[in-house]
């Protein structure tokens, strides 16, 4: 790993500098994570009076539980739709803004602010728009003959949270795509134009390949965000319903733990999610380091 070629020779100072962050990381990350791992091997009664070692039973049970398998499926549907929607729309907006010169800054400002909106608030905004009694969208859907009700219909509920999550994520992706586009040397686009490539052709043969590092980065970030930031959106709107229809993995950890008081199972789910995140982090890091090196 990189350092400076010349370094300060102090022996103890670096440890003192790292101490605050490492202390907090240890107390609030590693210790709880270790507790989760430990807990995932125990079965505890809901009142915390007794617990016994059950080995991998919490894990094996999870994968036989229809609710958990259902939750994996829901998570996949949610993550893929949100990521796809947010990436494609953001890319379209970024390419459009990148074409403009005078109005570029104005459009950028008008498109990036949703980044600042809390996921929970984003959820409430869309929940309000889709509210079956007073919402504007169900009213419009009713006109075309669709009876919207995310309180009863699982698909409607899923569409609601996908829209809310993508709406929130687009601005983030847009910022990165735009930065990526602006980093492409103008001479390349000009060379393509001289070589007779029209706008569409040059987009697919020049721009998109050069954006692939950005796209890969965003893909990972979007997946992670779809896995976790969703929590607030779901809790503020569907609360996992109807009938588990939007009970994604991260929400289920919370439901089974805090509401269902099934601590062993919740811990096992935590451990699985942590493993997934750590894996994604390492992939991302390998990739970042490779880019930083030169």
């Amino acid at each position: 790993m990189q350092t400076k070629r010349a370094i300060f020779p102090n022996k103890f100072l670096p440890y003192a500098l790292l101490a605050p962050q490492l202390a907090i990381t240890f107390v609030f990350f590693f210790w709880p994570a270790a507790q989760a791992v430990k807990q995932s091997f125990y079965k505890e009664d809901p009142f915390g009076l007794s617990s016994r070692f059950v080995g991998l039973a919490n894990y094996t049970k999870l994968f036989q539980e229809p609710d958990y398998l259902n939750s994996i499926g829901r998570t996949a549907v949610f993550a893929i739709s949100t990521t796809g929607l947010a990436l494609i729309l953001a890319l379209i907006f970024a390419v459009a803004v990148d074409r403009l010169i005078r109005s570029r800054n104005a459009y950028t400002t008008l498109l990036l602010w949703p980044y600042a909106v809390a996921p929970a608030v984003a959820g409430i905004l869309w929940w309000f728009m889709f509210n079956p009694t007073v919402g504007i969208l169900p009213y419009m859907l009713d006109v075309v003959g669709y009876d919207w009700n995310h309180r009863l219909n699982q698909t409607d509920a899923m569409i609601l949270i996908v829209l809310a999550a993508s709406w929130k994520q687009i601005s983030y992706n847009f910022i990165f795509f735009l930065a990526g586009l602006q980093a492409i040397p103008k001479s390349l686009k000009e060379a393509a134009a001289i070589d007779g490539a029209g706008p569409v052709k040059s987009f697919f043969t020049i721009i998109l390949p050069l954006l692939s590092p950005t796209s890969f980065f965003l893909l990972v970030v979007n997946i992670v965000s779809a896995l976790f930031d969703t929590f607030a959106i779901i809790d503020a709107t569907t609360a996992g319903g109807p009938a588990q229809g939007t009970n994604v993995l991260v929400y289920k950890v919370y439901q089974d733990g805090f509401i269902g008081l099934n601590l062993g199972s919740s811990a096992a789910q935590s451990v699985i999610l942590m493993a997934v995140v750590i894996l994604l982090t390492v992939i991302q890091f390998r990739y970042i380091e490779r880019r930083v090196q030169y």
Partner: peptide, 13 residues
């Protein structure tokens, strides 16, 4: 390693 490990995942402990 904690980069993308939000509090939601390890909420109980």
């Amino acid at each position: 390693i904690t980069l993308m490990l939000p509090v939601e995942v390890r909420i109980m402990p």
